[in-house]
Design a protein around this nucleic acid. Structure first.
Lengths: 154, 154
DNA sequence: ATAAGATCTAGAGTTGACTCAAAGTCAAGA
DNA sequence: TCTTGACTTTGAGTCAACTCTAGATCTTAT
């Protein structure tokens, strides 16, 4: 009926070590044991693992996820704490994505620059190409510190 | 003419510890010392710090950034290595952003769900609201594992 | 019944990126 | 000159999140 730890390893890509570690840290309080002590995972436990992965990707630490799970176990009296937590996560992801977009623009410029440099055999020559100047303008219309320094360095 | 470590701390928000650590790891090979042994940072060093921050945000480790800087010091004979590195970074950031968008959708649903739950005082009641069912459909038109399990767990 | 392979526990070790401690040196103002 | 605060070095410590070890136990196939 349930899954062994090995089956969960295959399904999730997590290691058995990690699954036991998560359990020890309070992330999987619903996992039961067979009469001989082997872990038995249910579909719902797999659901929790997906949720844990999601919260981890959102920037939450293991301990904070454990706290969320404790709140869930307590029930509706902790709704306020949980809604606050989700609001903060949402804001954190949005900030992270905005930051990543800026980083992506910079790396996109550098990639194009180095592709040109590879073609003509010289980074300095590529940097001074009108083409590259235009790309820089396009990507960084509002001049930033990076715009000013990005050619001075590698 | 140059900046002291303390001035760079103020400008960058990095700690003096971290600046010395970066130097030790080969991230700042251009920083010089005054006759009495104090570090002197130039504008170009600040540029490198911006670049380091950018590469770090892109998912590169300190050692890998050090490798990149070594390539830069060697010169145009390492253009191929560097262009490959930037291409990989670009792909990595794009993948990370796509992943974060999926996480954001999930967290957005959970935030809305918990806000409803807080209003009506019960997570179960909120989960079964037609409003929430519709939101779930909207956010997850292509049903994923998460769509199926997201209500079973907290 | 036995061998092979999966799983168990407790606890130690690893990795990456800092972060701090201690003891000494340097620079600028009263 | 003296003091205060910033700076120097080496080397050790911290933290999160695994990751592994060892020796015992369990399950399953022959």
């Amino acid at each position: 009926m349930g899954f062994s730890i090995g089956e969960v390893v295959k399904k999730t890509g997590l290691s058995a070590h990690t699954l036991r570690y998560y359990e020890k840290e309070g992330l999987l309080p619903f996992v039961t044991k067979s009469s001989s002590g082997l872990r038995v995972y249910t579909e719902s436990d797999l659901g929790w693992l997906t949720m844990i992965e999601c919260l981890k990707s959102s920037g939450l630490q293991i301990k904070e996820i454990a706290q969320y799970i404790k709140w869930f176990q307590i029930g509706d009296s902790t709704l306020a704490e949980r809604v606050e937590m989700f609001r903060k996560r949402k804001a954190a992801i949005e900030e992270e994505m905005a930051n990543l977009q800026i980083v992506l623009d910079k790396i996109t410029y550098k990639t194009a620059l180095y592709e040109e440099a590879l073609k003509c055999g010289s980074l300095d020559t590529a940097t001074n190409l009108p083409k590259m100047q235009k790309l820089k303008k396009k990507l960084f219309e509002k001049p930033t510190d990076f715009d000013k320094i990005m050619d001075q360095v590698g």
